[in-house]
Design a protein around this nucleic acid. Structure first.
Length: 878
RNA sequence: GGGUGCUUAGCUCAGCUGGAAGAGCAUCUCGUUUACACCGAGAGGGUCGGGAGUUCGAACCUCUCAGCGCCUACCA
């Protein structure tokens, strides 16, 4: 027996453990069925499940479970990302608590500590994914720093290096002074702020009483200036070109040059050029062969090339202004809106910094990655994201992949004594090549830099499947079927996977890419810790169950839009689960058990044929919508069928059968009810895997597990099977509505009369008991020649007129008002029909079916109007 | 600056190829019935941001105005 109430805590974790132990998530490698595969967007190993993961993984799990039930051979490949900076940060923070820095430990020992940490605490997010119900094949769990995946990284690195797609260059890069490493453009967050614009002047070398006026937001960088640029198109300043000016304080002489970068309209028209600390100036410097003076240390303090060595940029800025003011060069300071770059992880100001770094030739790799999308080999869903993808790919810059961190894939680069580079997959190979190169044994020095985390993530689609080793998983599951991810990592990850995969595999990593939005709070505000509006999905699961949260995610996921999290709505879906639970209890109490080999086509009762047709229809809707990644439409189709059709109508309609005496009918109805409930469990399983499994396992002995039950396809629905009961439902609705509007006590059993076509009367005759029961009627009979009296209220359902005698209790005023209102509505509609049908071009140009439909409505409305007028006439004098 | 999206019922949002405006929550009535009050029945509520155009017909297509958002960018 099922418990009296739905309590997800009783079974969710238990059921998950059983699935996993039974190996239900593993693909069948001997099967030759179609493959369906997804690689999980690897969460950071340091991560805890946040609400965005809950959405992302719910959607994946729905697709995975659906396809598994469709009979495909399914692999959902899980794993985690080593998350270079993030992880190093966490471990460093832990060490700091004990007063230790990573430098105290040294590189090797530190890395050991990170691995130790991973062993202790790295599994959190995977445990949480299990709690959510994610049916990944955990036996294949991978980590981007695993031996196999590391080998993949080295192999592709070497290959790209040898193909000239990876190169070393001394360039300005985004430098994070906190972690003392380069970061990529994408890891820099631009924040709008109101800063200051500083105006001051540099004296000319040949005449210290003449000045060139400068405007800058960063006066402290003046010690790195190696020129001042003006445009030759600037009539006021062009005469200065070719002269020299003097940087105050340090009294260094620099040239005034002509460069298009100096826009006469902006600032003072003259720009100080600091090639080592500004991306634009760097370009100017290259054009004019200017010296590049580095004024910063790795931690962004000023170095000995400045008078303020050791100070932070802020301190130095204050000092510089003081000094300039003192010397009389300062002119004015204005507020100035500007954009300041911050490190995504560190939160500190990013400095353009001149260093040796390694780059991937992204513009070249982008060519094939773009072509694959343009040719439809990889398709974005929704398609708008294709634009975003191309927009970025068309403007892509070389990708800085080297990081001066310790945690990550150390680059397979070795330097010879004369700094010759040897790039090989292993140290032995590099040594061998080097020895041959030098003609003798030499000492090699390994590059200390590690790779950007996203380098290894870019290989995820094939490295997790065992590449570079040829194997059956790679064979069967690559390219993967679909990647499900949020739009914020299209560039970080999706684009890089495309580039890496097209380069190495010559095939797309996934055939489709489903992009979902962000999870926001109930009012569409972005969730953030500072606003205090974050929601912990684990708490939500604790409170309402994983199924309720999953259903919520599915029901709210409309293509590409953000999801607003509403606790009320999650509670609503918990209520939905309760509803299903109770419906199942109803079936159980009435002995509706699945009948082996029961043939639904043999159902004879109208009501049973009806629900079977509706169930097939709902199944088809869910299938179609899931096939098109329309999660909310799929979820709503299930919801509507289960609650609105099965519970609200079918269960109510079959109660009289169960309370009656017809053994044949009871037997058939029990079998059908059980069949429909089973069908519900099947089509609901991808959304709510736990409750459906619990019910599946408890209601009857089963031959198959629900997780592997067959998802029905290509069923035919006989429209005739639905029509009578649909008619009766409308009819019951009309009576209920009439009763409510007339304030007739629910308890009062009434008689009713009907005037209708022979066909409709036939339905009434057949479904009399059923209608009377739900409409609370004593009896319902055809109105033949029965005199119509004033003591009757009237309503209309489709073409049938319903009359209910109310001896002496009719409130004529209320009834007149009600009928009058109905009449007005009909007249309004009739006007619109007449207008349309009176329009010659409508009749001539609109499709015949549309015109016919309009005519039918007109006829129906006219008919109803006559009936209402009749009723009004009847009570006219009371 | 470039790109891109949004504006529909009190709230949060659906509405796929243009053919009589929908859901959930909230609100208001009413509760005969042992599956369920985490419930049931009924009802009210929208000139689909403003304007113009295309069309027989527009929430949907075009233009325009207004407001909001996101991504991206080197404006000293």
């Amino acid at each position: 027996m099922l418990e009296k109430s739905y309590n997800p805590k009783d079974f969710e974790e238990k059921i998950y453990a059983k699935w996993e132990n039974d190996g239900d998530f593993k693909p069948d490698m001997r099967s030759d069925r179609d493959a369906f595969s997804i690689v999980i967007p690897p969460p950071n190993v340091t991560g805890v499940l946040h609400i965005g993961h809950a959405l992302n993984n719910t959607l994946q799990d729905i697709l995975v479970r659906y396809n598994r039930m469709l009979g495909k051979n399914v692999l959902w490949q899980p794993g985690t990302d080593h998350a270079g900076i993030a992880t190093q940060m966490v471990v460093e923070r832990n060490l700091a608590k004990e007063g230790i820095s990573r430098h105290d430990l040294g590189r090797e020992k530190f890395i050991e500590t990170v691995w130790e940490w991973k062993k202790q605490s790295g599994g959190t997010i995977c445990r949480q994914l299990r709690r959510l119900g994610a049916s990944c094949d955990w036996s294949r769990e991978r980590f981007t720093m695993d031996d196999g995946l590391s080998r993949a990284v080295r192999k592709i690195f070497v290959s790209m290096y040898k193909d000239g797609l990876i190169y070393k260059a001394k360039k300005l890069v985004n430098w994070d002074p906190k972690f003392e490493t380069a970061v990529s453009d994408l890891e820099v967050i631009q924040k709008e702020t109101v800063g200051k614009m500083y105006y001051y002047k540099y004296p000319l070398e040949d005449n210290p009483n003449e000045f060139i006026h400068i405007a800058t937001t960063r006066p402290e960088t003046m010690f790195g200036d190696t020129a001042v640029a003006v445009s030759k198109d600037n009539p006021k300043l062009k005469n200065l070109i070719g002269k020299n000016c003097v940087i105050p304080i340090i009294n260094r002489v620099i040239p005034i040059i002509d460069d298009e970068h100096a826009d006469p309209e902006k600032g003072t028209g003259a720009v100080k050029i600091t090639p080592a600390h500004d991306f634009n100036d760097f370009e100017v410097g290259k054009r004019h062969n200017l010296p590049m003076i580095n004024i910063l240390n790795k931690d962004a303090t000023l170095n000995e090339n400045t008078p303020f060595a050791g100070m932070s940029t802020q301190e130095a800025r204050t000092k510089t202004i003081e000094k300039l003011t003192e010397l009389g060069f300062m002119e004015k300071i204005e507020d100035h809106p500007m954009v300041i770059p911050y490190g995504e992880r560190s939160g500190v100001v990013i400095e353009p910094y001149m260093t040796d770094q390694w780059f991937v030739d992204a513009p070249k790799l982008a060519i094939e990655a773009k072509r694959a999308v343009a040719d439809g080999e990889m398709e974005f869903v929704p398609a708008v994201y294709k634009k975003t993808y191309f927009e970025w790919m068309n403007n892509i810059q070389p990708w800085c992949i080297s990081r001066q961190l310790w945690w990550g894939h150390q680059m397979p680069i070795w330097y010879g004594p004369d700094d010759t580079i040897f790039c090989e997959e292993t140290e032995e190979e590099a040594q061998a090549v080097a020895d041959k190169h030098y003609g003798k044994h030499v000492e090699l020095r390994r590059e200390t830099d590690v790779l950007d985390t996203w380098f290894s993530s870019g290989l995820w689609a094939f490295s997790t499947l065992g590449w570079p080793d040829q194997n059956e998983y790679l064979e069967k599951f690559y390219p993967t079927s679909v990647l499900v991810t949020a739009f914020d990592i299209i560039f970080f990850w999706v684009a890089r996977m495309m580039m890496m995969s097209m380069y190495m595999m010559k095939r797309v990593p996934f055939k489709k890419c489903y992009i979902h939005g962000l999870v926001r709070d109930a009012h569409g505000q972005k969730m953030s810790k500072s606003k205090g509006n974050t929601v912990d999905p684990m708490e939500t699961i604790e409170k309402y169950g994983a199924d309720a949260m999953r259903f919520f995610m599915a029901a709210m996921e409309t293509q590409g839009r953000d999801v607003n999290l509403s606790e009320a709505r999650i509670q609503g879906y918990r209520n939905f689960a309760t509803k299903l639970w109770n419906a199942a209890r109803f079936c159980e109490m009435n002995e509706c058990y699945s009948v082996k080999d029961f043939d639904i086509s043999e159902a004879k009762l109208e009501i049973n044929k009806w629900i079977i047709a509706k169930a097939k229809e709902a199944t088809a809707q869910v299938s179609t919508n899931l096939n098109n990644y329309r999660f909310s439409d799929a979820a709503n189709a299930v919801y509507q069928f289960v609650w609105g059709t099965f519970c609200d109508w079918y269960i109510e309609l079959i109660k009289p059968i169960f309370y009656g005496e017809n053994a044949e009918s009871i037997k058939e109805t029990r079998a059908v009810a059980a069949w429909v409930l089973d069908r519900i469990l099947v089509i609901m399983h991808p959304f709510m895997p736990f409750i459906t499994t619990e019910l599946w396992d408890n209601l009857t002995e089963r031959k198959v597990k629900l997780i592997k039950a067959e998802w029905p396809t290509n069923e035919t629905v006989n429209e005739n099977d639905k029509s009578d009961i649909d008619w009766a439902i409308d009819f019951i609705g009309a009576i209920r509505s009439l009763r409510a509007s007339m304030n007739l006590p629910a308890g009062a059993k009434l008689s009713a009369y009907v005037k209708a076509s022979a066909a409709d009367l036939d339905i009434i005759a057949k479904q009399n008991a059923l209608i009377c029961n739900l409409a609370r009627l004593e009896n319902l009979q055809a109105l033949n020649d029965l005199p119509v009296s004033k003591d009757m209220v009237q309503t209309v359902s489709r073409e049938a007129t319903i009359l209910i005698p109310l001896k002496g209790v009719v409130d004529f005023e209320a009834e007149r008002a009600r009928l009058q209102k109905e009449l007005e509505a009909l007249n309004k509609n009739l006007e619109s029909y007449a207008r349309k049908l009176g329009n010659e071009s409508f009749v001539a140009k609109a499709p015949a079916a549309v015109v016919e439909e309009e005519k039918r409505r007109q006829a129906e409305a006219l008919d109803n109007k006559a009936k209402v007028e009749e009723a009004l006439a009847r009570i006219a004098n009371f």
